[in-house]
């Protein structure tokens, strides 16, 4: 047990932190929703009703889609673009998908390589792109969930304000949908930009996301 915790501490920390934050969001969101209901002459709802409501779903989904988009973009774009001096980047000149030998696939696979790295055809292609495919799929599903939950939430607010509801297509073209979407995208893109650029010049001793403290600013692709 102790060894399991030590070997998986990073994943477990973020899993627990995620659940705590999601629980906190549901409690704060329920209180905020009920305050709005009282203002509009409606009725407060229970926590269980709130966590199955479109209000909670759209607020969760809009953040999920932007996070997965952020990681998807980073995974895919760093194949082709580099940033000199950044530990987040490959070295200049190494852009591209790299050779089978460098990627240790097919005949270049090692005895302990994953089975699908040794395979040929579709299985190898799928495995070689599996991280991007899964992250991309989750991004699309989350964005779709945001649009559906957003439609329900927007229409609930429209009716409470004595206005007509809209269709899903109408909502996807609405200012509310794009305001929610772009306000999340801009913050994620800024965070990635900051990480790429600041990690050229700044260090965090002991972190694998940083270059070792004594490595020169120009050194690229070296993680601590």
């Amino acid at each position: 047990m102790r060894r399991f915790l030590r070997d998986n501490g990073l994943s477990l920390f973020f899993l627990v932190a995620f659940l705590l934050a999601l629980g906190g969001q549901s409690i704060a969101g329920n209180a905020d929703y009920n305050a709005r209901q009282l203002t509009e002459g409606g009725a407060p709802i229970s926590w269980v009703s709130y966590v199955t409501s479109s209000d909670f779903a759209v607020n969760v989904a809009e953040n999920w889609q932007s996070e997965y988009l952020q990681f998807l973009l980073y995974i895919m774009i760093t194949v082709w673009l580099v940033q000199r001096g950044s530990p987040e980047s490959k070295k200049p000149g190494e852009q591209g998908r790299e050779s089978d030998e460098e990627q240790k696939v097919g005949p270049h696979a090692e005895p302990d390589s994953p089975a699908w790295a040794k395979a040929t055809g579709l299985r190898r292609t799928l495995f070689a792109n599996s991280l991007g495919l899964v992250m991309g799929t989750i991004f699309v599903l989350s964005w779709l969930a945001q649009s559906v939950a957003g439609t329900a939430n927007y229409n609930s607010e429209q009716l409470a304000q004595l206005q007509d509801p809209v269709t899903w297509l109408g909502y996807v073209g609405s200012a509310d949908f794009w305001n929610r979407t772009l306000q999340n995208w801009q913050s994620e893109l800024l965070a990635v930009l900051s990480m790429v650029v600041l990690s050229i010049y700044l260090r965090q001793r002991g972190s694998p996301e940083s270059k070792p403290v004594g490595v020169p600013h120009q050194a690229t692709g070296i993680e601590g």
């Binding site: 990073l10 199955t52 779903a57 997965y68 980073y74 991280l131 899964v134 969930a145 559906v148 990480m195």
Partner: peptide, 21 residues
């Protein structure tokens, strides 16, 4: 950057949310 381990249940939760809504 080592961001590989991401919780797969996210997709399941998303589908459930879609279906219920």
């Amino acid at each position: 950057m080592r961001w590989g381990a991401v919780a797969p249940p996210v997709a399941v939760v998303t589908i459930v949310a879609l279906a219920s809504l």
